[in-house]
């Protein structure tokens, strides 16, 4: 398969963003990491890295799902749908792995429950949303979900997941409390939001132009 130059630019951008995200737990180490020693520290840092990969995967998933004309023309609808499916499964696995890795160092008998730990609870809801998205998509026919209804729910929950992820990451980790990571994440979230809005409103704008 021969891709146009723009494809390499898009893939390169994604790779750079992911590499930058993976540097955060090292460059902007959270205070939670300060107080973990030995294997606990390694496991927690691995959990944070996996969490950031899951966030990147979620952002990619939203963009793949939105299927903007640039992506369609560059990669084709079939490839985008296949990647959307594969990335969804990957996202679900990363989310589960993230939860396990960040909870183990603190002890599984010491789960961050209750209003005091609300950012972690938001993460818990996010995990449920991601998990239900994956299951309902993979087994839609077996469950007996009508396609149109499923698509509406799937899209809505996709955007809900993005909002939950933004809140979870911005408030759960002090690495994102201020500075470059916070500003970079907000910039990426706004970019994705604008891209999705542009894709969704493009047909209406086209109709408006035609009427004029």
């Amino acid at each position: 398969m021969k891709w146009p130059l723009i494809a390499y630019f898009l893939i390169g951008t994604v790779v750079i963003v992911i590499a930058g995200a993976l540097a955060i737990p090292f460059v902007y180490e959270s205070q939670t990491l300060w107080y973990k020693l030995g294997s606990d520290k390694t496991v927690l840092r691995a959990g944070q890295l996996v969490g950031l990969l899951a966030l990147a995967s979620l952002l990619i998933q939203i963009l793949l799902g939105a299927r903007g004309s640039l992506l369609q023309e560059t990669f084709g609808v079939v490839a985008l749908m296949a990647w959307h499916k594969a990335n969804g499964i990957l996202l679900c696995c990363l989310a589960v792995l993230h939860v396990v890795l960040v909870l183990v160092p603190e002890g599984l008998a010491n789960l961050p429950l209750g209003t005091k730990n609300w950012p972690e609870m938001v993460g818990g809801v996010l995990l449920l949303v991601i998990f239900s998205q994956a299951i309902s998509s993979l087994f839609r026919q077996q469950i007996g979900f009508i396609y149109k209804q499923w698509r509406t729910v799937h899209r809505t929950l996709g955007y809900v997941a993005l909002c939950l992820a933004a809140v979870h990451v911005l408030f759960v980790a002090d690495s994102f409390a201020q500075g470059v990571p916070r500003r970079a994440l907000l910039a990426i979230l706004v970019t994705v939001f604008v891209v999705v809005l542009a894709v969704k409103f493009a047909p209406f704008m086209g109709k408006l132009r035609d009427k004029r």
């Binding site: 205070q31 939670t32 107080y35 603190e106 010491n110 961050p112 005091k116 730990n117 002090d174």
Partner: peptide, 8 residues
């Protein structure tokens, strides 16, 4: 909250 979780 995070320090409390560590103390727990």
């Amino acid at each position: 909250a995070k320090r409390d979780k560590h103390l727990q």
